[in-house]
Design a protein around this nucleic acid. Structure first.
Lengths: 195, 195, 195, 195
DNA sequence: CATGAATGAGTATTCATTCAT
DNA sequence: AATGAATGAATACTCATTCAT
């Protein structure tokens, strides 16, 4: 909507941040405009100066998460032609980046991954992209040829989702650690010997 | 509340079933009492004849799920002293049973696993129990000694959660198939050779 | 909406009547639901038990007026083949009936003739029907052949509108008197001799 | 309010013109200050630089219409002592002037005749003045002695109102044509012979 | 066992208006 | 002469819940 002076931009940003936090903490329905504006030090009409509706702010936040996530994923797409001995490091890297991204803006992650109705869509997209990568690597002979990579991708996304919520966002584990654990588990399993 | 005649029991059961379905489909907030009673062929006051409040029905459903789940898990707890060559089959069995259970009442699974605020609690409990089992097996030397079993348990629960939603409840995969895939993935990883 | 017991019908009717009165007195925008329900001895939610929205009640009232008016007009359509000496009485009769109808439910008349956005549509329709009748009579030689009957019909509707507001609804004149005056004026003009 | 430089006068005039147009098109309540200022290329506070309130602009427009109308009517007041054979032309002249005036500023006419709450007052005043003239002419023997001139005046005003809206403002008829039709109708009626 | 009828409490949204610059 | 930013006050509408029958 408005794009005027610097002061207005600040108010808008404040509202957006508070809204993200409220949505993340209480979910969409329990979040009240009155709370948002009061925490932002403004009154209700000011909210409508910058956003069309409660739904509109939420969508803006959702969109922000989705586009940032997409950008992140595209950037860290696996280059083809990696050496067999590098596969593990490359994947671990990707996972570390992903966890790092999800940790950057916890409120946004909550919204995009858990709160929004689009969340399942988001995760399905993510699943598709991961499945694609895994299949390519499978074709290159890096992975067991009989594994169902669509299922594996879903397992991985579920794993990421859960670890994000239970370990990452509450500060119990770092992106590095989680990436390492996941890579070991998914590449070598619980029984085999790892390097 | 009431425990009157057979007719009343029927109405109560109908309300409970419809409520479960509505909650599963639309979530807690979007579910309206008016919709529930109308679908059950009753009027609003009748609802309050059998339940204290909207929250109360929801809690009853949640409780039902939790206790059934607990019972299920307790029943299929791994007996100690299994042979090394049976471990895989035993775990696969447990997973098959779990997926089978989650498929029995899809509405209830939705509620207990995804809708309710207690859902995370439920999954944390499940995680703890699984972690316990895994740790025991790790101590017995069945699993790689350096794997962090708390993390692995969380990975597994995330995996179960996601597969339940994306494969099981929508009918894309059977409990058997999922159990097999998960067991292979988690025990041997993507790179190693499986029997 | 609801069509249950007699008591509910009464409440609904009361709301409708009060709404009509408020709309008639204050116009659409100034009329508040809170006023309507309070005057009807009810609370806001009850209003929505019987009507979908403020707009919906208004539309219902408008529709009621329009259909009653149409019925009235259709009923009193001039029969063809009247004697030359009866024309005046027949028309006067029609006018008396019309004024009588408009006096029956003053609130509804206000709404349908003056308040609603459809009011102009209503009057245009009325104009068309009157023009049709006048043209038929003109063809039969009862009226001056060069008069533009579309214009005359509009003059007549304007006249009816104004007299309704200024004479009829405030009780200054009766339908009979107005019908007589209008018939004399429109048939014989201000200069000619009347029987 | 202000009467500053030429630039301010221009802004004020622009606001007034846009306001008139908005009021004419959408009515008082649906007209928003935000729309007016935006169409005038200004911001909301500027509006309050020139007018006290929304009501104030509206009143100013209403006043403008009323005073112009009064002036018009006073100017074209019938001189006494006209010849019997001129009566018709004189009246037709007056009507032509009136329609011409109403066509000059359509927005203002809309407001003064149809939108404002004072509109009925305006028309009542007009009715009184017309009735006065008609009565004078009746006393002079130009009109049928038994006609109720108060009623006739109201008929005439209703007629003018309706023709203005349906024929004049939308360009379907000219002031000249309408004046002629009305004069013929009101002086000679539908049945009699005209010269 | 069930219902017709009603309500308390809450919430998003709108718009005219103003203050400081 | 004009604007960026903000607000007070009001209003339609929703939903879980209850009472008398």
């Amino acid at each position: 909507m408005r794009k005027k002076g610097a002061n207005g931009q600040k108010s808008r940003a404040r509202l957006l941040a508070v809204a993200a936090n409220e949505f993340a903490l209480s979910g969409y329905h329990k979040t009240k405009i009155s709370t948002i504006v009061s925490r932002a030090g403004l009154t209700q009409p000011s909210f409508y100066l910058y956003f069309d509706s409660k739904e509109a702010v939420f969508n803006e936040l959702m969109l922000k998460f989705r586009s940032q996530l997409k950008e992140m994923v595209v950037d860290s797409r696996l280059e083809s032609g990696i050496q067999r001995e590098d596969v593990r490091d490359v994947i671990q890297n990707v996972l570390r980046n992903l966890f790092g991204f999800l940790l950057m803006d916890p409120d946004l992650t909550q919204i995009g991954f858990f709160i929004g109705e689009e969340a399942s869509e988001v995760k399905e997209e993510l699943t598709r992209m991961i499945a694609q990568n895994l299949k390519a690597e499978q074709r290159d002979g890096y992975f067991h040829p009989e594994a169902n990579m669509d299922i594996v991708a879903e397992c991985l996304v579920g794993t990421i989702e859960r670890l994000t919520l239970q370990e990452l966002l509450c500060g119990k584990s770092t992106p590095e650690y989680l990436a390492e654990q996941v890579v070991n588990l998914y590449m070598f399993g619980l029984t085999s010997h790892r390097d």
